[in-house]
Design a protein around this nucleic acid. Structure first.
Length: 727
RNA sequence: GGGCGCUUAGCUCAGUUGGCUAGAGCAACUCGUUUACACCGAGUAGGCCGGGGGUUCGAGUCCCUCAGCGCCCACCA
């Protein structure tokens, strides 16, 4: 027996060494497994792409949980002899990264991106991402992730860049991407648009003003937008205002003098709310914009991109809206136009969740993906959609889930998914930032050129904007496999088997991948979507810097080992449920790692010298023990297949500690020290069998400690590529 | 406003198509150093399965209803 067993298990001494051994073996790469005869050339493929973490980020518990789940699934399938690929990558995270770098530059040099210029800023961002890339990659390894590093991809590397350009051009040519003036979520602080999904609403209290507007009273929380309000809107069925006819014009006194208002009847008005009458500001409000579109009304910009009032505001021109509001109300009041002010009105404030400011809707020329427009699907591999038929993106996204071709776990998220699709509007994909995939459109006078490469002649100007980061992320399952080239990888590994991610990015990412896969490949991007929950602190609060309740996965790995950290993120975490994590839990699982260590010590020291090359004759009791082992194998296997990793881990834990250690080993002591040589040999054989099987069952969950034990009594292959036990 | 969840032992959670005498881990308590392990072992205690109603031979599980908690979406100016 190896001397190392005389001391308690020390993850710190073991883990890096083991990871290196795995990496050196090359078996994270399925091609090498085939070459070494570990899996058959024509074995069933199994693939997962890693949801790419932000290249400038650091590992948090959410990542750790994701890595644990995926690595378990991957290791399980690899051991079952499948051609298994887990493909790593990182994401440029355009807005987040650029604003991080901009912030640092401003702090150190007091310079903005406009001071530096596009080229210089991008150089700085590149330097920053290059530098931080290795940090996140090393952290991914720390969790024991069996990722095929030879296939590493970065959203902004050359191949992915080409994929994104191709995707844009193809969608443009199909008429699904168009440029148009629509109302977008404008962040005056970051000076860019953000997508609907990135806008979060915060409940706040504020003043609500009732203003006299001719014969009407209108309510508003934002008097500073009201300068151009020349349409007064009410519900067509509202009896209180039946005397006013649609299109009727009324002269009335307003902020900066007399104006002519036109009556509009539209059922977007809520008769119950306020007075049931409103004026509209189509340039800065989505509802208003839509009303204006329906009735073909004028739209006028009131506020500029920096949040300052324009000429239309008269004496208030050039003033920031924050300052202007009080002054405008004061003026209205002097004119006797303020009827009432409600001091504590609750309303929600739209803010940019990517770290910007308060959203100010603006009408802007932007690029959009049309989710309603039908296109012809050429080579459909989608159940229920024939090749050559026409479909729009919304219906495509629905069909693949409804038909069951894509399975979502837990299942109830399907409803959330459908609900989101039903409310989906055109997807604004252009961003006014510099770091990212620049839109492959060039302009020259009135001409427009769209192509993957710049036009060769002089004088063309490329569109200034970059693409929404989710546009490139949407291609991830196939851009990482080499698309648009027709690669062997794409052929073998796509569609991928599982997409594992947090339920919080179901819309951002999962839905967009389904959209992109459907359009570009006529196929699904993955067969199963496994959604994990959020990792919270022991009281169920989100982990955050401000509360100071962050548990750093790397600290935990350092203190208790990668195996314990992984197991803690799995046990008790049903799919889709948030997980409450405490340091104590992780500590407890470190004890489990040590338990296995000691079980091995006991078994190995007791079979030393015994010839177990042939299966001895077993007693009925021995057979019964093996039968119980088989039940455990079956239970663990079934649960992993059903993606109930929590139950699988729990069952293995239960069996190994309270079955194997507490009962079987205890009972064996007597036999091993007894005089019956035959019984002893049989039991030695059984113990070894159980140990081998237990290590295998546990390997996906606790890869380090099991591999380390394995190395001390099995000479041949790594445990990582040993066959999964059959029952 | 619309949607989706959750409520089971002190705490964290399992409990799959109804068969449960309701389980596990942690915590608590008692005892214990014997061929691995004190990062341990043996044992004990702890539950009207949120309330009410229904379906059923049988309900933690299915249906209705009420209450509390949480999340997501949304154009109430």
């Amino acid at each position: 027996m190896d001397e190392k067993f005389l001391k308690p298990y020390d993850p710190k001494e073991t883990e890096d060494k083991i990871y290196k051994k795995w990496e050196d073996s090359g078996f994270f790469n399925p091609d090498n497994c085939v070459k070494a005869g570990i899996c058959d050339e024509d074995a069933e493929p199994f693939s997962i792409v890693l949801p790419p973490p932000n290249v400038t980020g650091t590992l948090h518990m959410g990542h750790a949980a994701m890595l644990a789940v995926e690595d378990i699934i991957v290791r399980f399938n690899r051991m079952r002899g499948k051609k298994t690929l887990w493909l790593p990558g990182t994401d440029s995270a355009a807005i987040a990264t650029q604003s991080k770098v901009e912030g640092e530059i401003y702090k150190k040099e007091k310079k903005t991106r406009y001071d530096l210029g596009r080229e210089e800023l991008l150089k700085r961002v590149k330097a920053f991402t290059d530098e931080s890339e290795s940090t996140i990659l090393n952290q991914l390894k720390k969790m024991g992730s069996s990722l095929d590093w030879s296939r590493y991809a970065y959203t902004l590397d050359e191949k992915r860049y080409h994929a994104v350009m191709t995707a844009f051009v193809n969608m443009y040519e199909a008429g699904l991407i168009y440029r148009g003036a629509r109302i977008v979520n404008w962040d005056p602080e970051l000076q860019t648009t953000v997508s609907d999904d990135e806008v979060v609403r915060k409940e706040t209290q504020g003043k609500f003003y009732y203003l006299k507007y001719g014969p009407f009273t209108i309510g508003t929380a934002r008097p500073e937008t009201k300068f151009g309000d020349k349409y007064v809107v009410m519900h067509p069925d509202d009896k209180r205002y039946s005397e006013y006819k649609h299109g009727e014009e009324l002269g009335l006194e307003w902020i900066n003098g007399p104006i002519v208002a036109t009556v509009i009847k539209d059922d977007a008005t809520d008769m119950e709310f306020g007075t049931g009458v409103m004026t509209i500001t189509p340039w800065h409000d989505l509802t208003d914009f839509e009303i204006a579109e329906r009735h073909n009304l004028d739209k006028e910009q009131i506020i500029d991109e920096k949040g300052k009032l324009l000429k239309i505001a008269g004496e208030f021109e050039g003033m920031h809206i924050k300052k202007a509001r009080a002054l405008i109300v004061e003026k209205l009041d002097k004119k006797g136009l303020v009827e009432k002010i409600d001091e504590n009105h609750e309303h929600s404030l739209a803010t940019n969740s990517r770290g910007g400011g308060v959203i100010e809707p603006q009408i802007k020329e932007q690029w959009f993906v049309d989710v309603d427009k039908e296109f012809k699907i050429e080579n459909s591999k989608i159940a229920g959609i024939d090749s050559g038929s026409s479909i729009n993106l919304k219906n495509l996204m629905k069909t693949v889930v409804e038909s069951g071709q894509i399975e979502i776990l837990p299942e109830h998220f399907k409803k959330t998914y459908y609900h989101w699709i039903d409310n989906l509007r055109p997807w604004c994909i252009s961003r006014q930032i510099w770091f990212g995939h620049r839109i492959p459109v060039w302009y020259k006078d009135d001409e427009v050129y769209v192509g993957t490469e710049a036009p060769s002649e002089e004088g063309w100007q490329q569109d200034e904007d970059t693409l929404d980061t989710w546009f490139s992320s949407g291609l991830w399952t196939f851009s990482t496999l080499g698309w648009p080239e027709k690669t062997e990888d794409l052929e073998i590994y796509h569609p991928t088997n599982v997409l594992e991610t947090g339920y919080d990015i179901l819309f951002f990412w999962v839905a967009r991948m389904i959209l992109m896969g459907g359009f570009h490949l006529g196929d699904i991007p993955f067969k199963t979507v496994y959604l994990h929950g959020l990792v919270r602190d022991e009281k169920g609060r989100k982990m955050s810097k401000s509360i100071g309740n962050i548990i750093d996965p790397l600290d935990m790995v350092e203190k208790y080992g990668g195996d314990a950290t992984r197991l803690s993120l799995i046990i008790g975490a049903a799919p889709g449920n948030d997980l409450k994590l405490s340091e104590n839990k992780i500590k407890g699982h470190k004890h489990f790692a040590n338990k296995i260590w000691n079980i091995s010590r006991f078994v190995l020291s007791n079979i030393d010298g015994a010839d177990l090359s042939e299966k001895p004759k077993l007693s009925d009791k021995d057979e019964e023990i093996l039968h119980e082992l088989n039940n455990t194998v079956k239970g663990v296997t079934d649960n992993i297949e059903k993606y109930r990793l929590d139950l699988a881990a729990d069952e293995a834990y239960q069996y190994i500690w309270h079955g194997f250690a507490d009962v079987i080993i205890e009972e064996s002591k007597e036999i091993l020290s007894g005089d019956d040589k035959e019984a002893k040999l049989a039991r030695q054989w059984v113990l070894k069998e159980i140990l081998i099987t237990s290590l295998k069952l546990l390997h996906p969950f606790m890869p380090y400690v099991t591999e380390e034990i394995w190395s001390s009594f099995e000479e041949k292959d790594l445990l990582m590529v040993s066959p999964w036990p059959t029952n």
